[in-house]
């Protein structure tokens, strides 16, 4: 291929990535909207190491080039991730679009990224120089700004094996399919012996990146449900203060109102 590379191994892909000015191409569903002709693609969808979904005992490792359909078909992927991924666009896009592509596009509307935020997922980034593991929240530095070096590839997404079971998720789009998130919400709660061991709340499509505020979450950690109930108003008020939505296809006021409504719905759902 002139002006395009389709490596079959990660090693080859990294060497190419280091040696040339290349745009990693996973599913193409974002790149091809522009359809730039004067570009050299690195097609990463035939690299076996980036196509696997495995449980290593510590993490569920989702290969970066797995398509949304492959994620939906995997028995290992948690339900929350499947629910979010199943709401992306429509079958043809889910057959092509990849997990790394959803991340690499840098959009706060990315439906799978929202789940990675509440899961506290990490990304395994690899280059010829070596590899590093970066928490998803650190990876997103701002609007379309990613902590990804020019020679690096996102190779795997590391999801904690547990913690996503008790969730509340909602995507708000303009219609029931082929919908870009106008807002999305995910909340997870981890209870042990009636005590909140962990809580995570994230909002998609409201700001430059997915929003998660760990300091606010701490308000409820270590509390019983009854204790948490007493904190409910303050907890909601803290989000009210923290969320400053951007205006887009819908107004900032609408986004804010729905964020708080869904936060309340999450708390209601979990008895808080």
């Amino acid at each position: 291929m002139v002006n395009g590379y389709m490596p079959l191994s990660l090693k080859e892909a990294l060497e190419l990535r280091a040696a040339h000015e290349l745009v990693p191409y996973g599913g193409g569903t974002d790149l091809m909207i522009e359809g730039e002709k004067d570009v050299c693609y690195l097609f990463v969808n035939k690299i076996a190491e980036m196509k696997k979904i495995v449980d290593d005992g510590q993490y569920l490792r989702i290969g970066a080039s797995c398509t949304f359909t492959e994620v939906l078909d995997s028995p290992l992927v948690p339900q929350l991730m499947k629910e979010a991924v199943s709401r992306i666009a429509a079958p043809a896009i889910r057959n092509a679009g990849t997990m790394a592509g959803n991340i690499g596009n840098g959009s706060a509307k990315a439906d799978s990224v929202l789940i990675e935020y509440v899961a506290g997922a990490k990304l395994r980034l690899v280059s010829v120089r070596g590899e590093r593991v970066v928490p998803i929240e650190a990876f997103y530095k701002g609007r379309k700004e990613l902590d990804l070096a020019k020679d690096e590839l996102i190779v795997e997404i590391l999801l904690p094996r547990t913690g996503l079971e008790n969730y509340f998720y909602q995507k708000v789009g303009a219609r029931n399919a082929l919908a870009i998130s106008r807002l999305s919400f995910a909340g997870v709660l981890h209870l042990e012996d009636g005590v909140i061991r962990d809580i995570a709340v994230a909002f998609g499509a409201v700001a430059n990146t997915v929003l998660r505020f760990r300091d606010i979450e701490h308000m409820l950690i270590g509390k019983t449900i009854a204790e948490a109930k007493k904190e409910r108003a303050a907890f909601i008020a803290a989000y009210d203060a923290a969320i400053n939505p951007t205006r887009g296809r819908v107004s900032a006021e609408y986004r804010k109102a729905v964020c708080l409504n869904l936060l309340r719905a999450f708390l209601d759902d979990k008895g808080i």
């Binding site: 429509a90 303009a174 029931n176 399919a177 082929l178 919908a179």
Partner: peptide, 9 residues
Amino acid sequence: DYIIPTAMD
């Protein structure tokens, strides 16, 4: 941005 119904709506 101009939203017409899909088969699911």
